[in-house]
Structure formats: structure tokens, C-alpha cells
């Protein structure tokens, strides 16, 4: 089923076009460089751009400092990719965020993903001042106001409003599980056009979540992309579970990785299977691949999963 979403944007980015045409969309997360060299961005984008309809530029995820999402997005536009500009509410207040969005749109960025953001305590500079002027939901509503009403939150007019495809995140596999679909609904009501979920390692929880989402008809109001990524070892899985906020990995999966002779190969196989599984779930419009430090494997994973089989790759 194709969600009916009206947008004032006359021109569409590739991600929006793919989703609206009913094809299974692929997005992938780029590992941001700790450098000021644009080539590092182009290098990191190459293995993702082969298969992805859009590349996510993270905004200091995990509260660790890297090249800014706006900088990366601008470079990706220059190289011909469609970036998803991630905006976290942790580091910038409403004045900075609204200005940045205008700047990004002027640079050719179409897709924006609104995130609350991990707390500063999770990152490499825990002494930083957390901002959280917006939350992800009020940020979504603000961007929709800028796009559709052509106004800042202050009511001041924007002479040329930004043409945005507005995204939000959801984390279907962590507490409070029963309220996650309700929170998703709130984000859609605030104005989200598409949703990228956090990493899913527990397919049962995700299926339960999606069943409720379908009951509420939310899959017809926004495009949902399931977050998938490969695990490389039991040690990494345990580390992620305890150190990265919002990651739920079932014990059974960690034990399987523990027992495997080649855990990285197993992790990759499970990742491919997960992509195939979510593709069969009604209401899922695509996958969002987060292969931290395994970015070079993304195109292989996507090609092996077969989700592109019925699709023409527009950009090699």
C-alpha cells in the first residue's frame, strides 16, 4: 500500500520519489569522518551510494563529535547523492536549528531526519551543555510549519520556504513497548512523512509493533523504513547493548554469535535474512542500513538480500 501524503514540495528527491512510486527504498548511514577533508566523505559514501536511495549524515550520534551533518550533507549533494540531514535536539536551540534547515535546503538537501539525540553523558565530551530546546516531535512540527506555512515559529515569513521531506525516528524494540506505536502516531501527526527506525534485532518485537501500526493505519500515513545492521561478534553485541542507548539485542542472538566459528559471517547472514524478513512485513516501505564500520559491506548485503531484484538501480 502506498501512503498518501500531500507535500507542498514541487520537486522531489530520489528517496521521496522511490517511496511514492511504491518501490522498496534503501537508505544507509554514513560513518562521519573525524577530519576536514571532503575526500573522506566521498570515500565513505561510495560503497553506500551504489545501492542507497539516500545516505544519512549523522549528527554527532552517541554524542560523539565528528564532521557536522550539514557539512556532510552539502558534500553529498555536491557529489550527486541524496543525503538525509539528521538533526539532533541535543546541541542546538530553535534559533540555530531553523536557520540550519534553511541553509541546508539552499544547499540542495531535501530529506531531514528529526531526532531527540543521545544524552551528552553517552559521548566523548560528557561535560557539554545539553540543549534539548526542541524535542523530536516539536521539531517535526516546526519544520512542517516552515515548509507548509512558510513561517518561522515566531510567525515571521520565509520568502522562499524549504522544500523538505520530513523524517522522524522510532525505536520499536525498547520500552515502553506498548506505547511506541502511540509515539509514532504523535510524530506522524506532528508532520513526519517518513520514519527510520532504530536497529532491530528482535523480529518478534518488531512484528508486534508493526501489527499495532497497521491496526492504527499509521503505515498509510507515513513511509516506514526498518533499521537493520550487521553484528560482528558477541563482544560487540554486548558492548552495544550496555553502552549504546536504545539498543535491544536478545540473549539468544548473542549466544548464537558466541557459539559461531565465524561470528562476522553469521552476523552478515543474519543481517541479510533480517532485510528479507522485514520486506515481507506489510507496512514496511524500505530498510535503513546502519553498518557501523562495515560500510564497505553494505552494497554486498543489499545485493545478496535480493531486495533490489525487481528494481532498476538508477545510479551506479
Amino acid at each position: 500500500m502506498t501512503p498518501e501524503i500531500t507535500s507542498s514540495a514541487p520537486t522531489r528527491g530520489r528517496l521521496e520519489a522511490v517511496l511514492r512510486s511504491g518501490r522498496f527504498a534503501i537508505t544507509a548511514e554514513l560513518n562521519p569522518p573525524d577530519s576536514a577533508n571532503p575526500d573522506d566523505v566521498f570515500e565513505a559514501a561510495r560503497p553506500l551510494g551504489e545501492v542507497a536511495d539516500a545516505i544519512n549524515a549523522t549528527d554527532a550520534s552517541g554524542a560523539n563529535c565528528h564532521m557536522s551533518s550539514l557539512g556532510i550533507s552539502a558534500l553529498l549533494v555536491r557529489a550527486g547523492y541524496g543525503p538525509v540531514l539528521q538533526i539532533s535536539c541535543r546541541d542546538r536551540n530553535r534559533i540555530a536549528v531553523q536557520g540550519d534547515v534553511l541553509g541546508a535546503a539552499a544547499l540542495g538537501v531535501r530529506n531531514v531526519l528529526c531526532l531527540t539525540g543521545d544524552d551528552v553523558s553517552a559521548g566523548d565530551q560528557p561535560g557539554a551543555k545539553p540543549v534539548f530546546d526542541f524535542d523530536s516531535v516539536s521539531l517535526v512540527r516546526t519544520l512542517r510549519t516552515m515548509r507548509d506555512e512558510g513561517m518561522f515559529l515566531s510567525g515571521r515569513k520565509i520568502s522562499d520556504p524549504p522544500k523538505l521531506f520530513i523524517g522522524a525516528a522510532e525505536n520499536p524494540c525498547v520500552e515502553p513497548l506498548e506505547w511506541r506505536p502511540e509515539r509514532l502516531k504523535k510524530k506522524i501527526e506532528a508532520g513526519a512523512d517518513f520514519i527510520q527506525t532504530n536497529l532491530i534485532f528482535d523480529m518478534d518485537r518488531f512484528r508486534t509493533f508493526m501489527a499495532r501500526v497497521r491496526e492504527m493505519g499509521l503505515h498509510e500515513r507515513a513511509f516506514i523504513l526498518a533499521g537493520i545492521g550487521p553484528l560482528t561478534s558477541a563482544r560487540v553485541a554486548r558492548w552495544m547493548r550496555s553502552r549504546v542507548p536504545g539498543i535491544h539485542i536478545p540473549d539468544a542472538l548473542v549466544e548464537r554469535l558466541d557459539a559461531a566459528s565465524d561470528p562476522a559471517a553469521l552476523g552478515q547472514r543474519l543481517c541479510i535474512e533480517a532485510i528479507q524478513e522485514v520486506r515481507e512485513i506489510e507496512g514496511v516501505s524500505g530498510v535503513h542500513i546502519m553498518a557501523y564500520r562495515r560500510e564497505h559491506l553494505v552494497s554486498e548485503i543489499i545485493l545478496q538480500s535480493g531486495v533490489l531484484d525487481r528494481r532498476r538501480i538508477l545510479k551506479g
Binding site: A122, D135, S136, P176
Partner: peptide
């Protein structure tokens, strides 16, 4: 701790505890 006004963040810990203050129940749960 994040002053969220529209629901919990994605970092809620198992059992419904806060991402930032693990000993505290999540305000939004």
C-alpha cells in the same frame, strides 16, 4: 533530563528506566 514534552526518547532502559539517570523511572513511562 532531556526535558522532552512529547513522549519518551529512544533510549529508555529495560524495565522502563531513564537513559541518563539509570536509577530513575522514565518520566514518560
Amino acid at each position: 533530563p532531556k526535558g522532552l514534552r512529547n513522549g519518551p526518547c529512544g533510549g529508555v532502559r529495560p524495565g522502563g528506566f531513564c537513559e541518563v539517570k539509570p536509577q530513575m523511572r522514565c518520566v514518560w513511562v
